[in-house]
Design a protein around this nucleic acid. Structure first.
Lengths: 207, 207
DNA sequence: ACCTGAACACCGTTCAAGT
DNA sequence: ACCTGAACACCGTTCAAGT
């Protein structure tokens, strides 16, 4: 049913196998976690032999990297969606923060994969997808007029770190979901009222 | 029958194997990463058969959990060390923040293991070791006089999240070490100057 | 009590062979 | 160009047997 449109009568995927593999891998990641995500199981679910994925992913890490890229793209989209509309800066800022943390909660295993240490070195695509996310976060801050690009960069990084940490604590189940929600709001408060924020966006009056 | 012969002649560990396995595992984790950490390799390095670890760790996850517990204990010690001495609150706060992030940088793979999503449910020991860390962080904040325990709890969680996020970005190599250092300082500034901090510790004058 | 070593199922990876 | 299936090395886990 999943592959209905992708298959021909012979059951071959004709170039769509890559997409099918990724979908199955994402599903497997969500339901059973990263440890259960084996190339052979993904191939099995796609109805192909265990050697078939090799034409699309040279090894397991390559598949994981592709998943991370998709994750960053989806998170970037979620942040972008939060930025749409004509809400004031402060409100948009909070919407972005909530979207970020919500993504981490809904897709904990994927989020963990995206920020796993090893993906960094190997694959340039992962790095670029992550850069895209950071760039979008930056545009969430670029609503005021020009200012020191240094303090703006620092504010952006601190914002990312704070959201990332909140997400991490929730994902690692070190805090409850309710506590997580409150951390997001407190974090937004603290960041918005900070001197660093005022320095980065001097034209914006908060509160 | 006596087992004296086993203990003396042939290099048996007679009760120390558990410790030796943990040391080898920690070393392996640091040098080659979590993926390379197999029970069989750890056993090999300890000079025992691949079945030997079973007497001390029921499965691989159990060994990983034990590593996480040791990691939390070491991080707790590092935080405690930063709290010693008679520095003023603000300075101690910064020392703790730096110690936290330094630990994450020096032992990235271990840090990742400690905050991995899966360890949460399974092992109560990991949860308790993490709670000990949080408790120590709390005592870093308990220097002022009494106040709303609610705002103090919130400040503590936000502090933990911020440090955790900074560490996460560095470990995931999404920022450079220099950027990481600056995020820590900015984070400390922002937290210390925040109204939430003032609410949690009303008797403290910062700046 | 602690450890050995065979056994089993599962994996990642490689590669010649098929279509 | 894309996929199959055998082959190989490595693993986690189990367990009867040894000391």
């Amino acid at each position: 049913m999943v592959y209905a449109g992708l298959m021909t009568e012979r059951g071959y995927h004709h170039g769509n196998l890559r997409v099918v593999l990724l979908q199955n891998a994402e599903e497997l990641l969500r339901t059973d976690g990263a440890d259960a995500l084996s190339l052979r199981e993904v191939a099995r679910r796609a109805g192909v032999s265990h050697g078939a994925p090799r034409a699309h992913f040279i090894d397991r890490q390559s598949l994981l990297n592709a998943l991370a890229v998709r994750g960053f793209e989806r998170l970037t989209d979620a942040v972008r969606a939060a930025l749409e509309g004509d809400a004031a800066f402060e409100e948009r800022f909070r919407l972005v923060a909530r979207a970020y943390v919500r993504f981490a909660v809904d897709d904990a295993a994927l989020m963990e994969l995206m920020f796993a240490a090893k993906t960094g070195d190997t694959d340039g695509n992962v790095h670029e997808a992550a850069a895209q996310l950071f760039h979008t976060l930056e545009s969430a801050i670029d609503s005021g007029t020009a200012s020191s690009s240094d303090s703006r960069e620092r504010f952006k990084l601190l914002f990312a770190a704070t959201m990332q940490g909140t997400a991490s604590l929730i994902v690692a189940q070190r805090v409850t979901a309710e506590q997580g929600q409150r951390i997001v709001e407190d974090a937004a408060d603290v960041l918005l009222e900070s001197r660093l924020r005022a320095q980065a966006m001097p034209d914006l009056r908060i509160q």
